[in-house]
Design a protein around this nucleic acid. Structure first.
Lengths: 337, 337
DNA sequence: GCTATAATAGAAATCGTATTCTGAGGGAGC
DNA sequence: GCTCCCTCAGAATACGATTTCTATTATAGC
């Protein structure tokens, strides 16, 4: 298979290379006869333009970058990300964009990745997931006018484009649901304390308590890593209190399930003595015993909004969406609460 | 932030653009004094070369493509893929490569994606996952000499580079383990019949039966989609037989767990009356009741071998690995078997 | 019949970097 | 003092497409 380029096609079709380009780009000022001749050769040889040359010339790579702030190990078992990635690809491909995924485990490599993707113009825009609450790099992206969208929340609210699950509302909903069903000592197991999700859900939790006139007890709030073991540790801590909690909200299904398993080990009856609610509605929920009530994050919508907004920014259109978009979550009731 | 390019740097450093390029590429034939001057300006302005121009000039994009033959919906809940993607990125970044992920749900879009990524030279090489047993496109890639590696198996065995979990061996191990613990009517629930994994594991299953002198009963082999519901349906079919199976091997943890749940609904005791073994050792396994014995696929190794081999191919080195690499799996014993 | 205008296609410039080609200068060797 | 070679840096070219500029031809309008 010979290396094909427009000049070869041009020679074979007996036209200039410029004409080949015009035909392929659908430029209207080209005669029907020429167009036919060129297309015939293109079809015959199966010529496809070189994306690298197009990128350089047009200053567009048609690549979106997804940067995930987690180590490979932490990412490994998480179904949230396969869903997110799949959904982004789905939307991007409709607009003829591709997706480049990078992970940033250490702070140093994070910086490197931003440099690498952005300054080298390797991608046209960035989707950022799971950033810290305040992030110097995000401000730099913003001040340089680089197109990017955050999945998650950022302050100040309308400084940048972001799409977020309604974490505050969702945690409020979960907490209120527990209160309505008679729970009074509701615990919250967060993830790493620096993460925005951890804090937002904590806020929703507190608001619901307050709205229902239940005093906030800081001893009922603990933090864990994204692992079963860490969740179990957090649960042990909670159970050491007297009286122990009668309900637990976990930041994550894995955390909630880990905590629930620990409670079972202590001989507690679920949901009679203690109820559990997780987040993400992962496959896990249907399989644990008792099945886990969970808040379902609407990933396709989240990914869709983020992708569409980003592409609009890249192409210079003003996104027809507010800077901060909030996607509602859904409570999926099962046996654990 | 002005648009920086080598010529600007050159002007400021009082050298030619060629010298700037040489300094940045570490070309040895450049005087120490020049090198210092250039680096000073580069540092000061934070110049980083344009990847698009480099791609065109060097004919290398430093992008690997990962093509997954599944719909976004099917991909959504699957932790296998986040693990795979994370592991590939991890290895690729060590060699200064990035990863572009694409999904191919329909046959038409599959073709389009191959064209798009390969013919446009958007990526330097391809990793393919979950292909069908025989695939016309793979033969084309091969005949065009395009660098690619398959995760999974392909026939003829040594026609292309592939890295595969030892599916035959793993299924053999699972089956033999069940037989050793006294099971006699062992069922197999595969995935879609066209997939190589489905067939390979079936083969391992059959071999183990034969080696242990247990006759093969085709009624004990059924196929399901990658969903809980489909798995439940398959299990119902198996339970309608007399005598029913006393053990089940599922292609997948989700399939195995779905089948197990169905068996519980029928009032069967696990593992006393019927045992279950799944594949992937996903988080799920530790949470189902009873916990699910599973074959752990060594994803980091799988991804690592595939990535290293691909990069070697791209860079024109002969991979120091056989064309067909097999990564051993591990039986993780839990309560269900 | 002559200019004005439109339609169309080729020539040439451009995107930013890597590399080959070329030439200047300096030291070694005789 | 001359050649030869070596080192090094600037000039020029190439990568493959897009787009502007330019030239040709045809048509219209008077």
């Amino acid at each position: 298979m010979a290396e094909l380029k427009q000049s070869e096609i041009a020679k074979l079709a007996g036209v200039s290379q410029a004409t080949v380009s015009r035909v392929l780009k659908g430029n209207p000022q080209v005669n029907e006869e020429m167009r036919r001749r060129v297309l015939a050769v293109v079809q015959e040889l199966g010529y496809v333009p070189d994306a690298r040359a197009q990128s350089l010339r047009s200053q567009r790579t048609h690549l979106l970058g997804l940067v995930v702030h987690r180590s490979p190990e932490a990412l490994a078992g998480d179904p949230f990300f396969s869903a997110l990635i799949a959904a982004i690809i789905d939307h991007a491909s409709k607009h003829d964009y591709h997706l480049c995924v990078d992970t940033a485990r250490t702070a140093r490599s994070q910086r490197a990745i931003y440099e690498e993707l952005l300054r080298t113009r390797r991608v046209d825009g960035l989707i950022l997931v799971e950033s810290e609450t305040r992030d110097r790099r995000i401000e730099r992206l913003s001040s340089e006018g680089f197109p990017f969208v955050l999945i998650g929340r950022y302050e100040p609210e309308d400084a940048i484009y972001s799409v977020d699950n309604d974490n505050i509302g969702a945690a409020y909903m979960a907490t209120e649901y527990l209160i309505r069903t008679g729970r009074r000592r509701i615990a919250y197991i967060g993830g790493p304390a620096g993460l925005t999700v951890t804090r937002d859900r904590l806020q929703g939790y507190k608001s619901a308590l307050e709205a229902c006139g239940i005093p906030y007890d800081p001893r009922l709030v603990v933090f864990a890593e994204f692992s079963e073991r860490s969740a179990a540790g957090a649960m042990t801590e909670l159970l050491s209190q007297s009286p122990p909690p009668d309900a637990v909200i976990g930041l994550d299904d894995v955390i909630a399930a880990g905590a629930m398993r620990e409670a079972k080990r202590y001989g507690l009856h679920i949901p009679e003595e203690i109820a559990f609610i997780g987040f993400n509605d992962s496959p896990l929920c249907r399989y644990v015993e008792p099945s886990l009530t969970s808040i379902a994050v609407d990933i396709p919508t989240l990914a869709g909004r983020a992708t569409e907004t980003l592409i609009a920014l890249i192409e210079g259109r003003t996104p027809d969406a507010p800077k901060r978009q909030i996607v509602p979550a859904r409570l999926v009731k099962r046996e654990s609460a």
